[in-house]
Design a protein around this nucleic acid. Structure first.
Lengths: 403, 403
DNA sequence: GCAATCTTTTTAAAAATTTAAAAAAGTTTG
DNA sequence: CAAACTTTTTTAAATTTTTAAAAAGATTGC
């Protein structure tokens, strides 16, 4: 009677690849899950019976029988994604075709002031307003800055929950499965499944935001290093005797090239009487600098170019070590991609062995500001195996009690 | 009659893990090859029938039936390893227990002057002198500096063979399977299977030699990057407006910290009248500096310390990006480990986030100067699957012809 | 010294998975 | 428009692999 757990692995794999691709044939699924076609068809029929999958007509053929296409049924399950950044949080809800089914809401909330209960309340409110039945929600993916252990469910930098882990606390309160991940890693996940890293096994994803994050894809998988600290890109020592960083060291990349550093430099220059259209702003924030830079304000462009050059210097080092196929610029500040690219490319050309630089493609994300939210949803999808087996375990327990 | 190729995968895996471990139980093998115990026993019995494996008595138990131990029969097959460095080549031959069965020979031959035919002649001479039947030799592992594609069998930097690949040329001449690999990668392989990286999935192996090499182990596998150029550690840009490097850039780590750089600095200082016991040498070479540094000569110690500090700076960056469990110092110059360690550790402490530095262990290789030769043998063992299937293919072809 | 416990090995049956051939459904070509 | 060719799907048999129980061998404590 009760489902076999080992068969679940293949079911989960099939759901994953169907989530990442609108429609697939049995042969595609067979390749994705690494099993024979008869086996893939068996898995698909199981998923149809369980209500996850639907047959979706025939695809075209180049001279042979047309392959039957399979898709996930979009409205059977939903995923809530919560993207937290330094100064605001975003919440969205996606269906099984990775489409947002309600408007994304945004709350201005500084990370340092954020309380867990507050966050939970906002999520609950959002789910209620969306009108979607809570029982149809597979899980909640929470992505945010900080040093995060996704397995233990703890954020060591923010939102400490005393005795319990952040994930346990939120799961209890929301009565839903919760998963957490670092924001840059989430963006990398988003780019890997739906963005520029889709067909790349070795990609570096730069999160241009308040800080400068790095998500690494190595051999087709998110790379975290031995203790989950890999990709500490923004604290690479760059400037000798540079400014003090919040990490305790001096001259980290972050002290020179993050949006926060750029804002502080802008204020300094304006205070020193530097001419700039930024002077017209009451408070200079990231949007101000981005807007004015796009319009051509010299100070804004200069500040961004300098920051970009420093990022390029560190990227040159990253390329020497990792030899990635592609470097993707994603995150909030990537929208002004054109402004970053020239000085970054310049720095890479100056500091990289030509052969290495030539093998690395630089691109700007086409996921725009949604990469982190999409990454949060991917986080939940990647855990679908655990979700399915938990469900079955709960069912079996219920059966035991009833007998 | 003819063996099944897919079954070979498990046989090859079993041979590999037996090569890396003197004796294993059926349960150990089952874990290594990822199959059930009955299946592992079936594989072992096949290998016994084929003459690779022997039962090796019983191991002790902590309260239960003693496990039967299996080992490779040492003298059924042999592996020739050729380690080429900037100024000399070494050749050795190992049995299936990874033990050298003839004295290692060393030829003083500069890499830039080395001719392929010369190399082949030396290898043939060595095999003849060893007295080992050529039909018992599984293959020849050649490891050397340069940008190498192990799959295509080409060294793009040295030993060009015009129309054919280096591997094809040598295979033809020697009538033996040949494999090539970069020297630092080979050292990493050696450390992974027999050295300090044995139980580590994320290890960085530094090859302290004429240059400064890096071999990376990521998720338990050698990491090569997208186009095989990962780990170009020695060309990380370190010094602003530094010396010209042979790579065309300025201020690479290599221009400051390689043995070659140290020798050139020593000559400069002596020429400027600096007092040092190095002045007594006719020509100052690496051995001279190493010897005098061990004896306490201030100039020699200073030069090595400065180089080590620079290496430490780059290691700090490497740690930020890779978060490795361990960094291993191997290669020729690692024998004076004590002298390198203090300034390296100093630089890491100064340039690393403390939490990251704390998670990374620094050790000196215990494989001494044999790491590269052992790595060359590992290279052949890692290809045992291909060797076995080639053998069967050849056998099948012969059968076809005879029929 | 023997019963209880523990671990490994063997065995046979069950389950999972693949293979290979046949059937079905198209497309292309002459 | 029929023959030839492609590609996908179905089917059933063959193979691979695991599971689970029984047997065997060793240790420990009473």
């Amino acid at each position: 009677m009760s489902q076999n757990i080992s068969a679940l692995v293949n079911n989960a794999k099939a759901i994953k690849c169907l989530y990442y691709n609108e429609a697939l044939s049995s042969s595609d699924i067979s390749n994705y899950i690494g099993k024979s076609i008869p086996h893939a068809i068996k898995v698909l029929n199981e998923l149809i019976k369980e209500g996850y999958v639907i047959e979706k007509g025939y695809a075209s053929s180049s001279g042979g029988r047309k392959p039957l296409q399979y898709s996930l049924i979009p409205d059977t399950h939903y995923i809530v994604s919560v993207a937290i950044s330094q100064f605001y949080i975003q919440i969205g809800i996606l269906d099984m075709n990775n489409r947002f089914v309600a408007d994304i809401v945004q709350h201005e909330l500084e990370l340092d002031d954020l309380k867990v209960d507050n966050l939970i309340a906002e999520i609950e409110k959002y789910i209620t307003q969306s009108g979607i039945d809570s029982s149809k929600i597979l899980g909640v993916g929470v992505t945010m800055p900080g040093f995060i252990d996704p397995v233990k469910g703890i954020n060591y930098t923010h939102l400490d929950c005393k005795d319990v882990s952040l994930v346990d606390y939120m799961q209890q309160a929301l009565s839903l499965p919760v998963f957490i991940e670092n924001d840059s890693t989430a963006i990398a996940l988003g780019e890997q499944k739906f963005g520029a890293a889709m067909y790349q096994d070795d990609a570096m994803v730069i999160n241009l935001g308040w800080g400068i994050g790095l998500g690494m894809i190595v051999n087709g998988e998110i790379f975290r290093g031995h203790s989950g600290l890999a990709g500490e890109f923004s604290h690479i020592p760059l400037i000798k005797n540079g400014k003090l960083c919040k990490c305790g060291k001096h001259g980290c990349l972050e002290t020179e090239a993050s949006l926060i550093a750029i804002i502080s430099k802008a204020n300094e220059e304006i205070a020193q009487g530097q001419r700039s259209s930024l002077a017209n702003y009451e408070t200079i924030d990231a949007d101000a600098i981005i807007n004015e830079a796009v319009k051509g304000d010299r100070l804004s462009v200069k500040l961004i170019s300098e920051a970009a050059y420093h990022i390029g210097q560190c990227l040159a080092i990253l390329i020497h070590i990792m030899n990635p196929a592609i470097i993707i610029f994603s995150g909030k500040a990537s929208v002004i991609g054109r402004l970053w690219m020239a000085p970054i490319q310049q720095a890479i050309n100056e500091h990289c062995i030509p052969r290495l630089a030539a093998y690395t493609e630089l691109v700007i994300s086409n996921l725009n500001s949604n990469a982190q939210l999409i990454g949060g949803a991917v986080l939940v999808v990647e855990s679908i195996g655990k979700l399915l087996s938990d469900k079955i375990e709960a069912l079996n327990k219920e059966l035991d009690i009833n007998q």
